[in-house]
């Protein structure tokens, strides 16, 4: 964060330019796992966004108190506390969502986006920009998840339902498909489809970035990982590409 950005830029950078999933390649595990239906994706996205905003605010407020040597464990504890809260809320008010997200709800604790933002942004900036950054990154995460889920649901189930607060639309082409003797491509919902759609979306994001003169998204080494500074495994790009 060399130059100061306006609050609006902090908010919008997470949507596209620094989209945490498609550009920074963070939080791949939940992205792949819960993007089987748009409903799950939105639920996961919102839960993670709430944790992200709260933990960014708390960590930013505590940034002068936390000694830098033990900052990672401190961040993890703060994040885990908020995740537990969100978990209890979801269990109480949306038990169906709790059921379908399964272990991925507690696993928000180890979602690299949250720890990554804590380390890269909240620990260096004041409270308000950190909250805005959390909101922007959360929306970017939710957007990428929902996009992937929409593609997978449409191809994999032949039907797509997008509903936000009771309003939305749904398409169902299973009958038309059956009429011409076709079935939905089930594999899109299964694990391989997740990897495939994710790969294609990253390729698309890379193409768009390239046309705008931005670098490609890479995960060749450890530089994207929030633990990089605390970790002794260093696989640099040159070393990795020399293999």
């Amino acid at each position: 964060m060399a130059e100061k950005k306006s609050l609006r830029q902090e908010l919008t950078k997470g949507f596209i330019i620094e989209n945490p999933v498609l550009r920074l390649v963070l939080g791949t595990c939940p992205t792949l796992a819960v993007s089987t239906s748009v409903e799950n994706a939105l639920g996961m996205g919102i839960a993670a966004t709430i944790v992200l905003i709260c933990s960014n605010v708390a960590i930013s407020a505590l940034r002068k108190v936390i000694p830098s040597k033990v900052r990672i464990p401190c961040f993890v504890v703060v994040i885990a506390a908020f995740v537990s809260l969100v978990q209890m809320f979801v269990k109480a008010f949306a038990p169906a969502l709790d059921e379908s997200l399964g272990i991925f709800l507690p696993l928000i604790v180890v979602n690299c986006i949250i720890l990554g933002r804590a380390e890269a942004f909240a620990s260096k900036n004041s409270v308000i920009p950190s909250a805005i950054d959390g909101l922007g990154m959360g929306i970017g995460f939710t957007f990428a998840l929902a996009l992937m889920a929409a593609i997978r649901e449409f191809f994999g189930a032949g039907a797509l339902t997008i509903k936000v607060l009771g309003k939305g639309f749904s398409i169902d082409i299973t009958e038309q498909l059956a009429a011409i003797g076709l079935e939905p491509i089930l594999i899109f919902i299964l694990a391989p489809g997740g990897f495939f759609v994710f790969g294609m979306l990253i390729a698309l994001a890379n193409k768009i970035a390239e046309n705008n003169g931005k670098p490609k998204a890479t995960l060749n080494g450890c530089e994207g990982c929030p633990m990089a500074s605390a970790c002794a495994v260093k696989i640099s790009d040159e070393e990795a590409s020399a293999q």
Partner: peptide
């Protein structure tokens, strides 16, 4: 060209998952 790097790795992962 567009698939080089991470995208092709994910496609390969998809095939291994199959």
């Amino acid at each position: 060209k567009s698939l080089r790097g991470l995208p092709i790795t994910l496609v390969a992962a998809s095939l291994v998952a199959v």
